[in-house]
Design a protein around this nucleic acid. Structure first.
Ligand code: MN
Ligand code: MN
Ligand code: ZN
Ligand code: ZN
Lengths: 132, 132
DNA sequence: CACTTATTTAGAACCATTATAAACTAGAAG
DNA sequence: CTTCTAGTTTATAATGGTTCTAAATAAGTG
């Protein structure tokens, strides 16, 4: 099983639930964006047994901490996550409430000239809001 | 009173509560960022009477709709607002959970090359996360 | 003043997320 | 295999920011 080592190497026990969530999250052609609710639905459609909502939250947060997922800063009543953990930017379609990845070549390098004493830059993210 | 016309011209009745909230939000040297809770505290410190929490929410949303405030996309359990409604970017200090304005000259122009059919760009915002 | 409509308000409701604590399980040691 | 322990899952309750409700109040109009 291809996710067992990934989990073990991260110090996470490869439980049935985590492996199944890995299948839903990472066994795909393309990366994607999701809310916890959307992930719950995907899980329901893909597997037979039930995974409790608490476990879905726990697992998503564990994966986020290990760097397998990242949160996307957006104003929504639900938190958005991304299976694309590389540094990249987003379109946000305000009407459809859908996120679309931007390639770095679609934006170009961003050089932050200002420095804050004692702080390091952890990430630089561009959010482009779209309207009709 | 300097905010009466502003409100009337926006189709908002210049009530005592709205005028007092205007004083707290706009009668300052610098623009600033705030959550609803922080705004409530500022109001308590600055005025004698009480303004109900519902009115604070109502007013902030009314001002946002009229373009006097804007929401900042950030992952937090509370919504952040900005009295600086010009297009600008932010540092976000992850430890202190504080927002800091970036001047446009600190970032430089951002040219989005990708187009989405039938959609127009409404805003382009950069969020720079800072860690120690 | 009389009337209409907007606004304020306290409190309830909502709902995504987090906390709890008991049952279960993976991995290690014997 | 058996035992032991720390990690994990789970149902359910609690939390807390935000929104809703509906009654009281205030603003604007004539
Ligand atoms: Mn998280
Ligand atoms: Mn709003
Ligand atoms: Zn993405
Ligand atoms: Zn700002």
């Amino acid at each position: 099983m291809k996710y067992i080592d990934k989990l073990r190497n991260s110090g996470l026990r490869p439980t049935k639930q985590r492996l199944q969530i890995c299948e839903v999250l990472f066994n795909t052609e393309k990366t994607f964006h999701f809310t916890i609710n959307e992930l719950e639905q995907k899980i329901k459609n893909k597997i037979d047994n039930k995974i409790s909502l608490a476990t879905v939250y726990n697992t998503v947060h564990a994966f986020e901490k290990k760097g397998y997922l990242k949160q996307i800063p957006i104003n929504s009543n639900q938190t958005y996550f991304d299976t694309n953990v590389t540094d990249h930017h987003h379109f946000y379609d305000l009407k459809d409430q859908k996120l679309i990845d931007l390639e770095n070549s679609d934006v170009g390098p961003i050089n932050i000239k200002k420095k804050i004493n004692g702080k390091r830059i952890k990430s630089v993210e561009v959010l482009v809001k779209l309207e009709d």
